[in-house]
Every structure is written in C-alpha cells, then in structure tokens.
C-alpha cells in the first residue's frame, strides 16, 4: 500500500498521540501495544549528551521486545508502592519524517514532559528532547514503533524516573 502524505502524517500523529496518552494514563500495557510485535522492537531513553560523545549508555536500554515487556513488569509489579507517584503530561510535535520503504518510516518529533508529584503537587518540567522513531506501517494504514530513541536535552534529570519518557 502506498499512503499519500496526509495519510502517512495522520498515521504518524495517531501513533505519537497514542503513546503520549498511554504514558500519561500510566497504561503500561497500552504503551507496549504501541510497539511492533517484532523481536527487535526497542525503546531507549538517554541524554543526547551521551549520544553526541558516542556513549551508548542510557537511562533505559530496552533493545528487544522482551525488555519492553519487562519494563511493564518493573512498573506494574516490581516497583509498585515504593516511590512517590507523579503525573506526567507529554507534549509531542512531529518535525520531520522520511519514508524508508513501503513499510517503514523514520520520524523525528520534539517532546516536553511536565511532571507533577502527587505529594507536593507543584508542576515542573521533567524533560525536553526529541524522539527519533522508526515506525512500521501496516496494511490497514496504522503505524507501530519499531524503535524509539528518546534523546533528552535534559542531561541532568530533576528526579528519578519510573515511567518511560
């Protein structure tokens, strides 16, 4: 299937917003459902500062589908009840995309994430940066994340992270 540019942009934006919505709803299975059902589906979160100096280490290094599934377990089971919970609001804006082949598109978007700790109730910026995504397009016109790199401008986080960015 060859999508027109408006169709492609709609598919991309739907996925970007579905991911923001899942994260802000703390719906970890919903977050996982935005990733392609392929073994190499991946999510990385790291400071852009590391990337710029060829340092691959990050805050989260989920380089396979099994690790994405494990992250759902970290949040929903292993860590439950041990941290100060916080709300997040993700603001995402697509800035460019490039179709690689009929099934694959690379997308760059900006994000900013506000955080409001439940105990203190004072909102602050948690992180700003870019998502560098590779998306899989399906025949029905939908898109899933094959790989996402959340590259943080925020090289010093203002807080520990529970949820993916």
């Amino acid at each position: 299937m060859t999508a027109t540019i408006p169709e492609l942009e709609t598919a991309i934006d739907r996925l970007l917003l579905a991911d923001a919505n899942a994260l802000d709803s703390k719906d970890m299975p919903g977050w996982l459902a935005n990733y392609a059902e392929e073994d190499q589906a991946s999510y990385y979160c790291r400071a852009a500062e590391n990337t710029e100096h060829n340092l691959e280490l990050g805050f989260m290094f989920d380089d396979c589908r099994a690790r994405l599934e494990d992250r759902v377990t970290y949040v929903n089971e292993i860590w439950a009840g041990t941290f100060q919970d916080y709300r997040t609001r993700h603001f995402v804006q697509r800035v460019s995309h490039r179709q690689v082949d009929a099934r694959t598109v690379e997308v760059v978007s900006n994000f900013s994430v506000f955080m409001t700790p439940m105990d203190a109730g004072v909102t602050q910026v948690l992180a700003a940066g870019r998502y560098l995504d590779t998306m899989r397009l399906s025949d029905d016109g939908g898109a899933k994340l094959l790989s996402r790199r959340a590259e943080l401008d925020t090289s010093v986080l203002p807080r520990y992270l529970v949820y993916p960015i």
Binding site: A47, N50, E56, L57, G58, S155, V156, P158
Partner: peptide, 11 residues
C-alpha cells in the same frame, strides 16, 4: 573504558 553517564538531581 567509559560507557556513559546517568545524571540526576535528588531533592
């Protein structure tokens, strides 16, 4: 051999 950093501020 350096692999990278995680930097954070704690309250």
């Amino acid at each position: 051999k350096l692999l990278g950093y995680q930097k954070v501020r704690y309250d």
